[in-house]
Amino acid sequence: MDVFNAYAYGSSAWLALKGFALLGAPKLVVTLLVGENRGHATELEIYLSRSFGLALLAIALLTIMMTGSIPLTSQTDVKSSDTEDTDPRAPYAFSALLITTLLHGVLAFYDYAWYISDSQSGLALGMVGSTIIAAMGVWCILFGTTKGRVSRKTGADKRTSGFPFKNAEADKRHAGRKAL
């Protein structure tokens, strides 16, 4: 399993865990997060908790589907292409990756801000989980979305440049090959 699929499944699992908690035990979640000790949750709080729980489950399922972790077409439906720039996962994989990474980053910051003011351990747990998933998403955005263009002769990535430093050793080897 590559890092991209690990991110998609990890992100979906984290969102589903939050969704099932809101869906299954809204009174417990509201009681844990409410500052005053009033004993019960109102009907509006229960309704909103269950609605947001269902929304988180839907986002978790959409993340799996849109990233292409579960293929929606059979191998016979996929046309072979000779271009290197096409992504075999899904056409919306990068968009789903970017949006869910931003979501987890915002959730981590939000949990951090509330943890600083209230010092509740549930917020700290949410902050740590969302931070890990967001960091994994940033890594996938930076390094995990392309295969690179590796030269068959030198083994180096063709997209690199010599700016601001020159690679004199590589230039010597390259000049030696031209002379032959």
Rank of each mutant, 00 (worst) to 15 (best):
D111W: 08
T101K: 00
T86R: 15
Q75R: 09
S80T: 14
V138L: 13
F109R: 06
V106L: 12
I132H: 00
L57F: 12
A113D: 06
G162Y: 13
V150Y: 09
L123S: 05
S121K: 13
Y112C: 07
R89Y: 03
V150N: 04
M66Q: 03
S151Q: 03
K79E: 14
T86Q: 13
S119F: 02
A134E: 01
S80F: 10
W139C: 02
H104W: 08
S161V: 08
V78W: 01
P71K: 12
R50S: 03
F94I: 12
V128Q: 04
P91C: 03
A93W: 05
T86L: 15
T154P: 14
L103S: 03
T83I: 14
I141L: 15
I132V: 15
A60N: 01
F109E: 04
V78F: 03
T154Y: 09
G53V: 08
L125G: 03
R89W: 00
K153W: 03
D77L: 10
D157A: 10
A93H: 09
G148P: 02
V138S: 00
T160R: 12
T131G: 06
F163Q: 02
T145I: 07
T83D: 13
I132N: 01
I59P: 14
P91R: 08
A90M: 02
Y92V: 03
D118F: 12
G144M: 07
Q120D: 06
D77I: 04
H104D: 08
C140G: 00
S74R: 09
T76K: 15
R149D: 07
D157Y: 03
I132Q: 01
F143N: 11
D87R: 04
I132D: 02
A135I: 11
L61N: 01
T100V: 08
S51N: 07
D77F: 12
G122T: 05
A60D: 07
M136G: 06
L142P: 00
S117A: 10
D111K: 02
I132Y: 01
L97Q: 04
D82K: 10
F143C: 11
A108F: 02
V150G: 02
K158Y: 07
S80L: 13
